[in-house]
Design a protein around this nucleic acid. Structure first.
Lengths: 118, 118
DNA sequence: GGCGCAGTTCGACGTTCATAGAACACCGAA
DNA sequence: TTCGGTGTTCTATGAACGTCGAACTGCGCC
């Protein structure tokens, strides 16, 4: 981890960055996955991309202020910054999540515990 | 104009495309400008980019299904597809517009009739 | 017909992005 | 201290993007 991860303050979130972060299906899938406000470990996340690519996507989400990452030993945990986003952009995340559900955006993203055979 | 402009059907709008379209300040500015549901002519639009670039941005908005373009002789008019978007993605556009207002995203975009000295 | 205007398309350039693999840094355990 | 697991960073590559100027198309008008 080396460099401490940066998390923008709530009042620094930029709309265009948030929109850009949510313009990739995999990232939308990750946000959907985290929308139950449960903190998840890296290892729980299942996505059809290489490890480094997943790390990249999580970094984008973090930089956009959508998620917060916590380190514990060698592992990392992610959580959605729901309240912060709602404070800055009321109803935005809810609207996006609803739309993403209807369209099933990012369905390829899931938890390892989910039955992969589905 | 040559090739007839394509306007995706309401039920074909893709969330990620909409998000991508709204991840550029100029395009957000255009959407804000059109948010009063008034049809505007190309000539009314003022943006700090070249003519061809503006054409490109309007094409992106059109392709994402956010706007509808009508031709009349040699001129074109744009209108926001508010109802269509609201049908497909309820509350999404409202949330984005509210956030964009708070942040004044795309303030560089305006109408020629607006006092430029401001 | 010929001119000019309005808007699009094309070609080009530099930037950013998504992606992957390899190398690295870090921590915990043996 | 050495090893393996975990996550980041580096480097590279191909694609997409924003931008512009120039060339093109189509329409209206003189």
């Amino acid at each position: 981890m080396k460099h401490p991860q940066v998390h923008p303050d709530t009042d620094q979130l930029k709309l265009t960055e948030v929109m850009a972060a949510l313009s990739d299906p995999i990232r939308v899938g990750l946000v959907r996955l985290l929308s139950d406000d449960v903190e998840r470990g890296w290892g729980e996340l299942r996505a059809p991309v290489a490890k480094s690519t997943l790390s990249h996507h999580l970094k984008v989400l973090r930089a956009a202020g959508l998620t917060r990452t916590r380190e514990e030993g060698t592992r990392c945990f992610v959580r959605l910054r729901r309240d912060d986003i709602a404070t800055r952009f009321p109803h935005l995340l809810d609207a996006v999540l609803e739309a993403a559900d209807n369209e099933d955006v990012g369905h390829q993203v899931g938890l390892v515990s989910d039955s992969v055979t589905a």
